[in-house]
Each structure stands twice: as C-alpha cells, then as structure tokens.
Simulated scan of single mutants.
Amino acid sequence: MKEVNGLVVCEGCDAVYRRPALRPREIAHCARCGTELARHAGMQQRRLLPLAVASLILFAIANLFPIVEIELQGLHSQTTLAGAVLTLAGEGMSEVALLVLATTLLFPLVQLSVLCYLLVPLARGTRPPGFAALVGLLQALRPWGMVEVFLLGVLVAIIKLSGMATVVAGAALWAFVGLTVLLTVVVSFDPRGFWELAFDGPTQQDVREADEMKGMA
C-alpha cells in the first residue's frame, strides 16, 4: 500500500481511493479486486513498545547464558549462541556460522533496536530522525529473522543427544522459547501502521512549528 496525501493505491489493481477512516476491527477492501487496503490496528500499537522491550530483555538472556549443558562420562560442556558460532567458524563452516550469526543475532537485534528507536518518540508524539528509512529497513528485515528456525534445530539436536548423554536445558533455551513467541507477535505488526502513528493528527513537532509560525505572524 502506498499512501500519498491521504490517498491509498490498491496493490492488486492500482485503483486509487481516499484513505479510509476505520473503526476498531474494521478492514477496508478494494471495491474492484477485493485486495485489502487497510485495517484498524486496534490497541496493538500501544502494546508493541512493551513487547519490544521484553523481547530485548529475553534476547540479552538468550545470548549471555548457556543454551544447554551436556554431561557425558563425567565431562561437562556448555555453550552460548556466540560460542556455537565461533565453533562453526573454527571447524571450517564459516558460511554457516555467518548465516547463524546474521539470522539469529544481528537481524533480530537490529529489528528490536529500530522498533524501540521508533516507538519511544512516537509514544511522545514526535517523529524520530530517519523515520521513513527505518520503517523501510524493518520491512526489508522481516523475512530474515529466523530465531524460530534456530530454536527448532536446537530442540532436534537435544532430542538426538539425550540418548547418548545427559542434556540439561539452560536459561538461554527458555529465553529463546519466550523470544520466539514475542517476536512472532512483534514482527506480525504491519510496518505501514507506523505511518498511521506518525501522521494521524498533529504531533508535538507540528505543534511547535505552528507556534513558531504564529509568533512570526
């Protein structure tokens, strides 16, 4: 959906409509092809910031604490996500290590950091610098965060190892479980909703500019 001066362009047939004013739970569809034009975000926008902060906390736990502890014949071994990446790189699998590093650490961290950077000023009624570029970055990174794929791989590995050694789940594993759930909710938020937050009604920046213009008149 492209929004220009209150207009909405249908992604299915390029029909142009005035941007609809929706009530809670309402969804606007194109009269020509039925493509969804817009939907009311409800209270999701207000819940997004605390969910993003909670995700950052779980993300820190997931990366600072051991994922699992393995005991085999009296020997103990435990590792963190960063340790697993270094191990993969040391065993000649640099491409796999880079992929794991990007999809489970760098991209999710960038997403959550950008979310908090955008949402904190928007909650105060101001638009942060670089707003449009960062919303576009969020849209581009959405398919690349693969924490749930990593979690599934860890669970499969634990099941296979449990028959040969004693495997104890670490704090990071439970943090990854919670992080997967929260990221699913956070990432499901349509980045186009940021434009509604930023441009529906005057912001504090707009009010200041209006006051300055009045003072000059």
Rank of each mutant, 00 (worst) to 15 (best):
M43Q: 13
A21M: 12
A169T: 13
L173K: 11
P129R: 12
A171C: 00
F176G: 00
G193W: 14
P20S: 10
R46I: 08
A97W: 01
V8N: 08
L22H: 02
L7F: 15
Q139W: 01
G163R: 13
V4N: 03
T79I: 06
P121S: 00
E69F: 08
E3F: 07
A82E: 15
A217D: 12
W195H: 05
C30D: 02
W174Q: 08
V147R: 11
L49W: 00
P202C: 10
L179E: 01
M1P: 08
P128W: 06
L101W: 12
G90H: 01
A123N: 07
A97T: 03
V187E: 07
L152F: 13
I70V: 12
I61E: 04
W144G: 04
L112I: 05
M1G: 08
I70H: 01
F150H: 15
L56W: 03
I158H: 09
V156G: 07
A210G: 09
L75A: 10
F194T: 03
D200W: 11
A82S: 15
P143D: 05
A123S: 10
T166Q: 13
E196R: 02
W174P: 00
L64G: 14
L86F: 05
G178T: 03
L101P: 01
L105N: 07
Y17A: 01
N5W: 14
F150V: 14
A210E: 13
F131Y: 03
M93G: 09
P108A: 14
A217L: 13
P128T: 08
H76L: 06
L72N: 13
K2F: 03
T103D: 01
Q204N: 10
T80S: 07
E36L: 05
L72Y: 12
F194P: 00
S94Y: 05
L138M: 07
A60Y: 09
L134M: 08
L155Q: 14
A169M: 13
I57A: 03
E36Q: 12
L155K: 13
T103P: 01
S162T: 14
E209M: 08
L197S: 02
M216V: 15
C30G: 01
L106M: 13
S188H: 11
Q73D: 15
